[in-house]
């Protein structure tokens, strides 16, 4: 075996382990941050600063009764949570983390990421359906409708970036931002993608599929133990993925002065994750009809305007 294979393997497992670990740590990090913002310490009992909380939670999740309801569609019920985790991990394959780190260098990397994040919604729809529970089903239906609505302009908002860089390859897009981050020319696109990204990862304020005030726990009402844990990790993976994508597409990826590229990438991603958590801490959940109205009547026109303007300007410059 030659070195490149080692490097590839290192890349693969490095990214895999890093992302899963990050997602796990995020369960602690989020609670800790939420705590600070709510004038309380958050989990601080297990290990130094509560860092071992992750382990404690993991032990708890693994040893909890893995309950499968009698009335559920059992094969689907068991498979559903794996989908979200798998797709999210696969999507990381095309994210370039530094000039040297990154699993695959796909020409259609962007489309691949979008496709994967769309598949993730099956997990939720199937989970909701297979639970055979009205809350779960309602949660699943909401997730489907939400994904369908927000997927549209999520893709459209990125077309500006694609037009400016002339490539679907994420690595090319990062390289194209060596001088100017796309957040500057594509500010509207950034906003639209940011919002669509939150919706896509079903985070507050767009967590209607599991809105606990109305739907108990939405699509994962019937899930417990590690099946629930996979939904949980899937959600955090989605958060990290969306943050990494925004970094890649709009914030110049690994570009930055002084510090090594991977550090810049991680810093930018971490900052975005923190923003995600801040959103959760600060914003209330909209009503379902408000969510749909906002998507179709505000975000879609905005992304179309952005697309037209970018295209026009590019044509004019050319």
């Amino acid at each position: 075996m030659n070195t490149s294979i080692w490097i590839t393997l290192l890349n693969i497992f490095g990214v895999l382990i890093a992302t899963v670990l990050l997602a796990a740590i995020l369960t602690w990090g989020e609670r800790r941050l939420l705590g600070f913002w709510q004038d309380r310490p958050g989990p601080n009992r297990v290990g130094p600063f509560g860092t071992l909380q992750v382990i404690a939670d993991m032990i708890k999740l693994f040893f909890k009764e893995d309950f499968t309801p009698r009335f559920a569609d059992i094969p689907v019920f068991v498979l559903a949570p794996t989908v979200v985790m798998a797709t999210m991990l696969i999507a990381f394959a095309v994210v370039p983390m530094s000039p040297s780190i990154g699993v695959a260098d796909l020409n259609i990397g962007l489309l691949f990421v979008l496709a994967m994040s769309s598949i993730a919604v099956y997990s939720i729809i199937l989970g909701g359906y297979a639970s055979n529970n009205k809350y779960a089903l309602l949660g699943g239906l909401r997730a489907a409708a939400q994904t369908v609505s927000y997927e549209v302009f999520m893709g459209l908002s990125l077309m500006g970036v694609v037009m400016m860089s002339g490539s679907f390859n994420l690595r090319d897009i990062v390289i194209a931002q060596a001088d100017t981050w796309f957040i500057v020319p594509q500010f509207l696109g950034f906003i639209v993608f940011f919002i669509a990204g939150i919706a896509e990862s079903r985070r507050t304020p767009f967590d209607l599929p599991e809105a606990e005030h109305e739907l108990t726990a939405g699509f994962h009402t019937e899930y417990s133990g590690m099946k629930f844990g996979m939904f949980f990790v899937g959600e955090y993976l989605a958060v990290i993925l969306i943050a990494a994508l925004i970094t890649t597409l709009f914030l110049g990826g690994w570009h930055g002065p002084l510090l090594p590229p991977i550090i810049w990438f991680c810093l930018k991603t971490a900052f975005l994750v923190a923003i995600f958590i801040l959103l959760r801490a600060a914003l209330p959940r909209p009503r379902y009809d408000q969510l749909m109205k906002f998507g179709w009547k505000v975000m879609l026109p905005l992304s179309l305007v952005n697309l037209l303007a970018t295209a026009g300007i590019l044509l004019w410059i050319a």
Binding site: F36, D39, P41, L278, A282
Partner: peptide, 12 residues
């Protein structure tokens, strides 16, 4: 406003 709470004393 929520962000500013990062610099407040905990009440716990």
């Amino acid at each position: 406003l929520v962000f500013k709470h990062l610099f407040r004393r905990n009440v716990t």
